[in-house]
Each structure stands twice: as C-alpha cells, then as structure tokens.
C-alpha cells in the first residue's frame, strides 16, 4: 500500500517528458523514459521516489494498492519501447504515435486519476485467454 500522491506526481512528470519527446523527436529522452517506466513497473518509479524524498507534505490520504500502478507503468513501458525502436529505426511517425499513446495514458492517470489496469486488464484477458480456471471460485 502506498501514498497515491507519489504516482500522481510521477504521472505529471511523465506527461511533461513525453511532450518534450514529441516536440524534439529525441530518441534518447524516450529511451530514458522507457527506463523510468521499467523501474516503475518494478515498483520503484524514480519520479515517485523524488516526490517521496523531497516534496511530500502532510499526512497521506487513503493509501492505494501498488499492483494497479505497476500495471500502468508496464503499459507505458510497452509504448515507450515501441516508440524508441521506431524512432531509432527512422520510422518517425510510428515512434511519435506510440509516444503519444504513452502520454495519453499518463495524462489520464495524472489529470483524471483513471486506473488503467481497471480499464484494460480484463479486456486483455478476455481476448487473450480462453479460460484460466473454469471451476474457479472467488479469490
């Protein structure tokens, strides 16, 4: 369980970084953001750690589970990797569109607090998996 203000701050910084990638077309910056997403997917987003270290004020509001946040970081990582490879290979438009998708995901989280895992995880499962456990009971 973690303070949700950290990942919210991280989402705003991510949005800003990806906006700069779109404006400059910088492969290096997008690659750096991909590393940040990878760390975030492992539960150690550097922006959130910065917030925790230097910017945290006052008591935490209601704590949130970490798994949904890590899922969202993994979604961001996927788009950032596609974007990085495309930009490096000279497929600029593909790279920028992938970057825009990652930006959109971050902005949905930052500005609206939308939980990407809630929206996507079940849809992905429904299309990719036959049935994990036909006799499954409640967890």
């Amino acid at each position: 369980m973690i303070d949700p203000r950290g990942p919210r701050f991280a989402a705003w910084v991510t949005t800003a970084v990806l906006a700069v990638v779109l404006l400059t077309g910088s492969t290096l910056l997008l690659a750096a953001q991909a590393v940040v997403f990878a760390l975030g997917a492992a539960g150690h987003n550097p922006y959130a750690l910065l917030w925790k270290r230097f910017l945290r004020r006052g008591p935490a509001p209601e704590l949130e589970p970490q798994a949904p946040l890590r899922f969202a970081q993994a979604v961001g990582l996927t788009f950032a990797l596609i974007g990085t490879v495309a930009l490096a290979a000279g497929a600029t438009t593909v790279g920028l569109v992938a970057t825009a998708a990652a930006l959109s995901a971050a902005l949905l989280n930052a500005a609206f607090g939308i939980c990407l895992g809630c929206e996507l995880y079940l849809r992905i499962l429904r299309t990719t998996s036959r049935n994990a456990n036909p006799n499954g009971a409640t967890a």
């Binding site: 404006l23 930006l103 959109s104």
Partner: peptide, 13 residues
C-alpha cells in the same frame, strides 16, 4: 508533426 500529434493526443485524452 510532433506538435500536431501532441495537440491531438492531449485533446482526445
């Protein structure tokens, strides 16, 4: 192109 994509992405989002 990047600026256009940025504006469209932010608007749609």
């Amino acid at each position: 192109t990047g600026l256009v994509i940025l504006c469209v992405a932010v608007g749609l989002t």
